[in-house]
Write a protein that binds this DNA or RNA. Structure first.
Lengths: 227, 227, 227, 227
DNA sequence: GATGAATGAGGTTTCATTCAT
DNA sequence: TATGAATGAAACCTCATTCAT
C-alpha cells in the first residue's frame, strides 16, 4: 500500500558507479545487470536471511570480487533492483486504474481486472516485493521511498477515480479519500503477497479476486456489487 | 490475514525441552523465558537478517552456550515466541469480533473498535509479526501454521458474523464469504503493519482507522457507513 | 628517546578484556599471553608490513578466531606487548643511570655501562622497538605514549645526574638540560637500533660503545673523556 | 645515521624501465614521476603498513594497471623514490659540513647550522626517511644501501673535519673517529625524526637544536661550547 | 544449569595482478 | 600508453557450535 502521499522522485537516471567511483563502460554495465538478474532470481529461491554474496556471484558465474566491484553488499543490489522495478512497475500498476471505465456494468469488470493485475504483478515480483515490504517495515528509509514511488501513483489514481465517481453520482466523496485508497492498496498488496497461503487452505485465487473486486467496486462506486 | 481455513493446531502445551532432552526445572525455564524476551526485544531493534545468536545471548547477559541449551537456532526461538504469542493473540483478536454488536448505530462502532484493536495488536508485536509474515510468505510451513492459528479463528468469526448479519437482514450472504473475511483480515493486517509508513506521509492512524471501519462495516452489514 | 617530559601514566593494571567484553579467566589469560609471545617472536622475523593475524595464530598453534577473541587486530596485540615491555623496560633502563657513580675514574666506566646496557636492551627488543619507533613517528598517540613511558624516566634521571655533576664541580648546568638529556637518549636509541647497519660497514659495536661513552661522559661531567 | 663506511654505489643513472622492458618515452616518464610523487605524498598521510597500490593509483588518477607498468610493487616505487632523494640529499647534507668554518667563534655557528639543516632535511622527507629507517633496520639490503649512500659522505666529511680540527689544535684525533662521526649522525637523525614527539612534550625544536649544536661543537673541536 | 574458551567453517572483503582493448 | 574489467588468492572476521568445567 502507499505509505506516502508525496510524489515519487524521478531521479533522472543517475549512472551506477563501480566500487572505485568510476562509471562503468559497456561490458561493466552488462556484468552489473547480470548480477542484478541473478539476485532477483535467487530472491525467489533462497530466504532473504540466507542470501549471500557468494550465492549471487556463483549464480552469475563470477567471483565475489566482481560483485563487490558493483555493489557494496547484498542490500545495495536489492535496492538497485527495487529501483529498477519500481520505475517500471509504477506505470504498469497505475495504467490499470486509469484505463478502465467504471460506468454501468463494466465497472465491476474494471474492479476485477484491477484485482487481477495486482495479483499478477505481485506474482511477477514476489521475492523482491517481499523484501521491500520487510525492510520498509523495519524502517529502512531507502526502501520506504521505493515503496512509495511504486505504490503512490496507484493510490492517488485510485483516489481520483473515487472522487470522480462520487461527483458523477452526486454523492459526497468520503472524507478519508486518500486513506481509503491507501487501505484498498494495502488490501490488494497483502492478499497478493499471501495468495499461496490462502490457497494452501482452500481459498482459491479466484474467490479472492472476486472478494476483492466486490469490496473495491463498492468502495469506488458506493453501490452494491452485482451478484 | 488468514492463509488457511483449517483450524489451528492446539498443541496441548508440550513442555519445552532442553538440548539434552530433559525437561528443564524452574531456573531453566526462567532462563529460557529470558532468552525469549530478549529475542523479542531485539526483533524490534535489529534487522531480522542480522539477528544473531550472539546478540540474543549478550542481550540476555549469558553466553551463546546457554542459548543452545534451549534452542537449536534463532529461528527456533522465534518460532517458540510466535507460538506463545499466537496462543494469546488468537483469543485477544477473536474476542473483538464476537463481543461487539452489529445492530443499529452500534455496528459502526464495533467496526471501529475492531480496526483499533487490530492496529494495537500489531503495534504490540510488530517485530515478531513482521518476521512471521516474511517467513510465511517465503513458504516456511511452520510459520504459516502459526499465522493460521493466529488469524484463522478471527477470520472464521468474522465470516460467521457476516453470515448472521446477512440472515438477519434477509440478504443473501456473499458467495465468497470466507474469502471476503480473509481479504478483510489481510487489509487489517497490512495497514497495521505499515502504519508508520502511512503516517510518515501524512495519512494519520485515525483516518486509516476510519477508512477501514467503513469498509468493514459495509462488508459486514451491507449498508453504507454512516457519515 | 624521550619525546615527552611529563610523567608516565601508571595505569593501575587494567584487566585485559576479551572480544565480548568479559574479563578472561586463567586459561584465557594464558592463551592471550601465548599470542603475545608469538607476536613478539614474529616481530623479529617478519616485516611489520607483512605481519598477519594468521601468522600469529599459526605460530601460537591456534586459529585466527582465537586471536580475535583477545585482540581486535595486530596493532592491538603489539600495543599490549609494548605496554608490557615498557613497564618493565622503564625500570631496567633507569636503574642504569641512577646506579653508577660519576666521580673520578669510575665516571667513564659508568658512561660505558650505560651505552652497553642500552645497546643490550635494544637488542632484546629490537622488533618491538622498531615498530614502536615507526608508529610513534607516524603520529600514533598510543605508541607515542608508550615510548614516553619507556624513555622518559631515563631521560629525567640523566638530566638529574647532569645537574648534580654540574653543581658538584661548580659549573653551571647547561641551559638546555632536558633537551640535552633527550638528545643523548636519542643518540643511544638510534645507534642501538642501527647497530647492525654500522657493523655491516666496519664500525664495530665496541667502537660505537666507546664513541658514545665519550660523548656521554663529556656531556655529563663537562670533562674530556680519558684516553 | 651512516650505517656503513664504504662508499655509496653511484649507479650511473640507469634509465627506468617499464614493465615490458622498454624505456618509456616522454609521456611515460611523466606518468612514472606522477606515481612517485603521489607515493611520496601518501607516505606522509598513510601508514606504511597500509599503503596499497590501489591508493597510489587512485591518488595519481590512474588505475593500478598503470602503476604496474612502472613498478612491480609498492616497495619498488619507494625504493626508486629513495634513490632519487638520496642522490640529491647526499649533496645537500654534505655541503653543510664542508662549507662552514670551525675556526673561532664561527665554529659554534657552523654546528648550529648543521643541526638546523639536518632537522629541515628530515622534515622535508619525513615519510620517506621513516620507511627507509624501518626497512633498513629490518635488514633489507637495498634500503641499507640507500641509507648508506645518503649518510655516508656526510659522516665521512664530518670525520674529516674532526681530524682536521684535531690536527689544527695539536690534539690527538679520537681513536674512534669514524664511529664518533657515525654516532653524531645517529643523534642528528633520530632527533630530527622524533622532533614532533619532543615538541608534544615541551621540548622545543630550538632547544633541541642548541643541545645538539653544543654536543657537535665539543665533539669536533674538543672545546667547551660557548655559553 | 551455566558458561568460559576454543575453533571449524565459511562468508566477506580487499588486493595484487593480468589481459584484452 | 593507458586502463576498464575480471578474478585468484588470501586475509579478515564473524558465527555457530561444541565441550570441559
Amino acid at each position: 500500500m502507499a505509505d506516502e502521499a508525496t510524489g515519487g522522485t524521478h531521479e533522472g537516471e543517475e549512472e551506477p558507479r563501480a566500487a572505485d567511483g568510476r562509471v562503468p563502460g559497456r561490458r561493466g554495465r552488462q556484468t552489473r545487470q547480470r548480477l542484478l538478474d541473478c539476485t532477483s532470481r535467487l530472491l525467489e529461491e533462497e530466504t532473504y536471511r540466507e542470501l549471500r554474496v557468494v550465492d549471487i556471484a556463483r549464480e552469475a558465474g563470477t567471483s565475489p570480487a566482481t560483485f563487490y566491484q558493483y555493489f557494496p553488499d547484498v542490500e545495495a543490489a536489492i535496492l538497485a533492483l527495487a529501483e529498477e522495478m519500481a520505475a517500471e512497475g509504477d506505470l504498469r500498476l497505475t495504467a490499470i486504474v486509469t484505463t478502465g471505465s467504471w460506468k454501468g456494468a463494466g465497472g465491476y469488470r474494471t474492479a476485477e481486472s484491477i484485482a487481477d493485475a495486482y495479483i499478477r504483478f505481485w506474482e511477477d515480483n514476489s521475492g523482491l516485493m517481499r523484501v521491500i515490504d520487510l525492510t520498509a517495515e523495519e524502517g529502512d528509509g531507502r526502501f520506504r521511498a521505493i515503496r512509495t514511488m511504486l505504490l503512490n501513483r496507484f493510490m492517488v489514481a485510485l483516489a481520483a477515480v473515487m472522487d470522480d465517481e462520487a461527483k458523477r453520482s452526486d454523492r459526497e466523496a468520503p472524507a478519508e479519500l486518500l486513506a481509503t485508497a491507501g487501505v484498498l492498496v494495502s488490501m490488494l498488496s497483502h492478499v497478493a503477497a499471501h495468495r499461496y497461503g490462502f490457497e494452501a487452505h482452500g481459498i482459491s485465487a479466484d474467490s479472492l479476486r472476486t472478494a476483492m473486486a466486490r469490496i473495491l467496486y463498492t468502495a469506488v462506486t458506493g453501490k452494491k456489487a452485482p451478484a
